[in-house]
Design a binder for these strands. Structure first.
Length: 563
RNA sequence: CGGGAUAUGGCGCAGUUUGGUAGCGCGCUUCGUUAGGGACGAAGAGGUCAUGGGUUCAAGUCCCGUUAUCCCGACCA
């Protein structure tokens, strides 16, 4: 590409409406521009990178034998009602009506349509296995879009679906996709971790996430370097810490604690560590109150709570519900004489002589023991903490933040049952199809790459993902010999298959250098005064300049890109 | 959905407290001097001050409404 007469611009300052490092760099480098909240234009530079990412994904998908197709984004609402997911998605689905008043939605993910497509193919067990994928625009009305391309409302997703006759074959198909995903992540040069995750709205038997590691990430990854344990915090099991028991039992005492609602305040009042308290949190579980007890310094894990109670929605109760359940203001809830079911974290079982709220505004009980109240169940209900015991090997886990770039789901028969996707087996028996679904966000991957590879000059793209591989910068457009030599090099490199950008704008050299670094072209050829002696300068974006003969440009460039 | 903030040339901002007819930096145009890491000088172009109403002789500025955007939280494949 020659830069004059091209759509190319950069900005010198950060955008007002962008927050993250990556989104600001991508906007400044002219890759993307916010159109409305959580919706982006992908401009030519960004599109080049995105297409390179997509090409890698397509290549790996095709290698697994997966066939590409394209589904509509506009889908009758009925399709999601039939699968039972319309309610699950709720407000996060964009919905609209056509001129006849028929309700439609914009697809947030496509299990249903793919199951319908599979139905057209599948009659017998002989019709499987097969798999399908698409690269298509998804719509999710996120309550709070943020971090540029990382949390958006309209985005391209590669989603793949596998169809198999039984669990055994499904596992094989899953493993094949899983391996393809590893190849994709490796080829994208992402620093990533694979973690166990919750299946969420997708349902199914197993979910693994491919997480790009960066402090910006919204997901917390629980990792153990000793045994390789890796899990999203939402499903990481906890090993209860067992308090030493000296056998003494204090007597249950009610104490006035007028201005102590938070754990910090109560700990201050009693002059004891938060570990001697039990927080009792009132949750609204599908409209009904439930109390959850965890040690004072722990946090409730709502995913675990939702699973334990087999609930659809779990959220902290509002003050009115708290008052109804406890008879007290928020901050004084406790398990003794509470008017709702109580669930306690396992760790509470091993505590003695602790302190809880008294269900009376301004009072707490001390000297509390497990015999003093009744619980429905003890279960793992808390979030694992940084430095906790690894549930797999007993050493210590540590936390990292990640951006979920990909996700694989072993769905089982959830959708085939909902949508009646069946086949006849060898014994002439009707069976349900086993499905898997696999998603990757190419634009998220692009943002994650920008986040992981940002430096003080711009984005340091991996060599094969940069929008252009080589930039030829002409120092002075007024010097005909420079222009001519640069054009000549441009033609040669392009003919050899390189993606080349020729900066033939009539600007000062410094501006061009800054632009090429901001955009992140890995290799630069500078054509300046040396041309009269048959020499140009080459420079890797993050390396040293080198003065070479013009005849050697091709071989030097080859050498750089081979490594 | 709760709390907070913002909206002024293409971009980033000041001006609002104290009402008097809009300014700065970057970018852009022209000319000149420059020319290897975001040059300098001179002269210019470019704004219904988000939007609708109101107060006033007079509103970017004060009052009421609306919309959009952002932040914290809730939520989230």
């Amino acid at each position: 590409m020659r830069l004059n007469n091209s759509y190319f611009f950069t900005l010198r300052e950060d955008a007002k409406d962008e927050d993250s490092v990556s989104s600001n760099l991508l906007v400044r480098a002219g890759f993307i521009k916010k159109s409305s909240s959580g919706v982006y234009m992908i401009l030519p530079m960004g599109w080049k990178v995105l297409q390179k990412i997509e090409a890698i994904i397509r290549d790996e998908m095709d290698k697994t034998g997966c066939q590409e197709l394209l589904m509509p984004a506009l889908i009758p609402e009925d399709v999601y009602i039939a699968s039972g997911r319309r309610a699950g998605f709720g407000n996060s689905m964009f919905s609209l009506k056509d001129r006849k008043g028929q309700p439609y939605v914009l697809g947030p993910t496509h299990e249903e349509l793919f199951a319908i497509a599979a139905k057209m193919q599948i009659r017998s067990y002989k019709d499987m296995p097969f798999s399908l994928y698409q690269m298509q625009t998804k719509f999710r009305d996120e309550p709070r879009p943020r971090y540029g391309l990382i949390r958006v409302r309209e985005f391209i997703m590669k989603d793949a679906y596998t169809f198999d006759k039984d669990e055994h074959d499904c596992d094989i198909a899953y493993q094949k996709q899983f391996n393809a995903y590893k190849n994709i992540m490796d080829r994208l040069h992402l620093n990533y971790k694979i973690v166990r995750a919750d299946t969420g709205v997708m349902g199914g038997l197993l979910s693994e996430e491919f997480q790009a590691v960066t402090p910006l990430g919204e997901d917390i990854l629980v990792l153990c370097d000793d045994c390789g344990f890796a899990s999203n915090i939402e499903v990481a099991p906890c090993v209860p810490e067992k308090e030493e028991d000296d056998g003494t039992r204090e007597t249950l005492t009610k104490e006035e604690t007028p201005n102590s609602r938070t754990i910090e305040e109560v700990a201050e009042h009693f002059h004891k560590s938060a570990k001697k308290f039990v927080k009792t949190l009132i949750y609204n579980v599908d409209g009904k109150a439930a109390a959850v007890m965890v040690r004072g310094d722990r946090d409730v894990n709502e995913t675990k709570l939702r699973k334990l109670l087999n609930a659809n929605a779990v959220e902290l109760a509002d003050p009115a519900m708290v008052k109804e359940a406890t008879g007290a203001e928020v901050g004084f809830a406790g398990p003794i004489n509470i008017k709702c079911p109580v669930y306690a974290d396992e760790e509470v079982k091993y505590m003695h002589n602790f302190i809880v709220g008294a269900n009376e505004t301004g009072y707490h009980y001390s000297g509390v023991n497990n015999e003093d109240f009744k619980v429905e169940a003890y279960a793992d209900l808390r979030n694992i903490a940084d430095g906790d015991i690894c549930p797999q090997c007993g050493k210590k886990v540590h936390f990292a933040h990640g951006i979920e770039v990909g996700n694989t789901f072993k769905l089982g028969t959830k959708y085939s049952k909902a949508l009646n996707l069946q086949y006849l087996d060898q014994n002439n028996q009707l069976q349900y199809v086993w499905m898997g679904s696999y998603g990757i966000g190419p634009a998220r991957a692009m943002a994650a790459l920008a986040e992981q590879n940002a430096d003080e000059n711009g984005i340091n793209w991996p060599k094969d993902l940069a929008p252009y591989q080589v930039a030829i910068v002409i120092i002075s457009m007024k010097k005909e010999e420079q222009v001519k030599a640069a054009e000549d090099i441009y033609e040669k490199l392009t003919a050899k298959g390189y993606d080349v950008i020729l900066d033939n704008r009539d600007l000062r050299p410094g501006v061009k250098f800054k632009d090429m670094d901001l955009v992140g072209i890995p290799y630069r050829i500078t054509v300046g005064k040396g041309v009269s002696e048959g020499r140009v300068e080459v420079k890797p974006r993050t390396g040293e300049k080198k003065d070479i003969a013009i005849e050697d440009v091709l071989s030097e460039t080859d050498a750089f890109f081979k490594n």
